[in-house]
Simulated assay, not measured.
Amino acid sequence: MQNWDDLRLFLAVAREQSLSGAGKVLRLDPATLGRRMGRLEKAMQVALFVKSPQGYALTQAGAQLLERAGAVEQAMRGTAVGDDAKSEGLSGQIRLGAPDGCANFLLPQVCAAIGRDNPQLEIQIVALPRVFNLTRREADMAIGVSAPTAGRLVVRQVTEYKLHLAASESYLEAHGPIGCLADLKSHRMVGYISDMIFDRELDYLADLGAGRVALASNSVSVQVNMLRQGAGVGVVHDFSLPFALPLRRILTDAVSLTRAFYLIRHVDDARNARLARFADLLSAGLREEVARLEALVG
């Protein structure tokens, strides 16, 4: 196995898929980084990357090294964290990937509470509307809206949550009441950009037979803010409504959707006591926060 400094540089290039991107993360000159990667490939006598104008893509050997190097990184992060982690508190850095609805309306409260109880812990929330690749170590763990069936992953359902149609009071006053689903066809709809829906569980409007999406975004928080501005009607998480008071749920008897959040971890991290402790705190916090916020809207 190569020394940790070589692996640290390799991990950055593999994750950023470019010398320039990795150079920014590491604060190293890309040319220096390129020489280091060339030296690493020569020492290992195998090509780790396919180089092209588009960047650095991993070869099969590179993907295998990424998995091994990621395991070394996790072990180093977890050094000195044993069975007494609960009493001594968590420390070090943990990166959490999440869809932006969860990241914007739930994780700030949950992670703030965990951080208060564990002042030496550094929590990074990566909010992106896509599926995270834990094999590439884009994050230490991720929240998903469906349970992945491929990959070396450990998945557990954390909590269910509700969604309903909603619109602002100003929009409803200007456009009249909405009495049934058929009425939606004459209203402006707010929702996801259709070709950027990264999970079938998010394709709410297709199942409702609503009209075209007049205002769209790949971001849940942007959709909520468009609805608050009276842009139209859309599907929103009940847990987001306490942060968007001008919005009011409509057609609650006709439309009530239930989805779930899943906590996804790489199988190689299953025995990492530090990450396991954080996962337990995160799961409990999410369940409590969803229940609290949903109770506020009835």
Rank of each mutant, 00 (worst) to 15 (best):
A127K: 10
Q124Y: 01
G89K: 01
D268G: 13
A63P: 00
L257V: 14
G92D: 03
H164A: 05
L241I: 04
L281K: 10
C180H: 05
G209P: 07
V235N: 00
R249L: 04
L205Y: 12
L163M: 07
P242V: 02
I250V: 08
R271F: 15
A71W: 06
G285F: 11
G234A: 02
R35T: 13
A206D: 12
S91A: 10
L96D: 02
R200F: 14
A291L: 06
E16W: 14
A244R: 00
D268I: 12
R130G: 12
R259A: 12
R188E: 11
L241D: 02
G151F: 13
E138Q: 15
A166W: 03
E41G: 06
S168F: 12
V267L: 14
Y56L: 10
L245C: 02
R95V: 15
I125L: 13
K185M: 07
E288N: 09
G38H: 13
N272S: 14
Q93P: 01
N104R: 08
D269Y: 10
R249V: 04
R35E: 12
N218C: 10
A284S: 13
F105N: 01
Q120W: 11
I114V: 14
V158T: 09
A214H: 14
L134D: 03
R136Q: 14
I114G: 02
L205Q: 11
L19C: 08
Q229M: 03
L26F: 12
L263S: 06
E160S: 11
K51S: 08
E289H: 03
I143E: 13
V267Y: 13
D83H: 05
A210P: 10
V81G: 01
L26A: 09
G151I: 13
A127C: 11
P119M: 03
V72F: 06
T159K: 01
M1K: 00
A71T: 07
Q2E: 07
P108W: 10
A98P: 04
G101H: 06
L247P: 02
L19T: 04
L121A: 05
Y56K: 00
R271D: 15
I250L: 05
E160K: 01
L257K: 01
V72T: 06
G144I: 08
D140S: 10
V72Y: 04
F132N: 05
A75C: 08
L241W: 01
S240D: 02
V81M: 08
E173S: 13
F49D: 04
